[in-house]
Amino acid sequence: MATELSYYLENLRDNLKLDPADEKEIITELEAHVEDKLQELKEAGLSNEEAVERCVGLLGSAKMLARQIYEAHSQGTWRQALLASTPHLFFALLFAPRWLVGAAWLPVIFGSFIAIVLYGWYHGKPTWLFPWLGYSLLPVVIAGLFLLYLPKGWAWVTILLYVPLVLWLLCYITIKAIKKDWLYSALMLLPVPSMVGWFLAMEQGGIFTGFKLERLHDFGPWVGLSFLVLAITVAAFIRLRRRWLKILALVTSGLLTSTMVILSSSKLGLFAFIGLVLLMLSFLLVPALLDRRIRHSNQQTAN
């Protein structure tokens, strides 16, 4: 097939942002369609080059065609929406009725999360996986935060060893998610800004001067409500067809949960709210920019 058409189909594939198996079928179907169209144009008297140029013109923008096909495939079922929102619902139920007593059983819960994540990771990385993936990275991040409370000498040694490893792991997983679709990366990182906000709200004095598990009970209903908002957001994300609506859902949930953090805490104010909103927006914009950079780099390699 002519280079121009191959480039068109490659451009289309880059913009589809669907499961690789679905993308392959769609591209194969469109290749057959294009070949039939080329045949018709050549039979009408056009040369090969003219037929290719006309064909590409008739197909229209690859991005637009990809978007239209994406919208036909992008809506998940209610079952997928429920599965994707389950981790958020679980945490909402955990905090709201103040069931969180002691941390001894947390490893069991996170162990279950990791098992589910590993299953999803090695079975095609479906959309519902990404909220679970975000939570399975939590123990890694929380452990890092608690390292800051170690006696000074030990803290620096551990941080110098631990932080690079954690950053590598987070980057690796985030880039894998971005390569599938940068929106999945944003979905994965969705709870992070509100968790950072709750962590700051529950600090006794200044930053990192003291943290007590009992403070979680004081904020329980608000924390539970914020996770419920995240659960509803994820369900809406799965069910919505259009990408801009999915992005709007993520942004709205970030604003709502940041507002809840500020309203429930007497010591966090406007600057904290702005900080949390900026953190939330960075988790949307950075994956989008990285996605663009990765695709640009791949195109340059292909050329």
Binding site: E29, Q68, I69, E71, H73
Partner: peptide, 28 residues
């Protein structure tokens, strides 16, 4: 897909001319 486009165009005497961006999303 291609056959559907030609069939619709032919039977409707040129009234129904669907582009790929309309047809394939509808089929899927």
């Amino acid at each position: 897909g291609y056959q559907i486009i030609k069939e619709l165009e032919g039977r409707s005497q040129g009234y129904f001319i669907f582009k790929e961006g309309t047809l394939y999303p509808a089929l899927h």
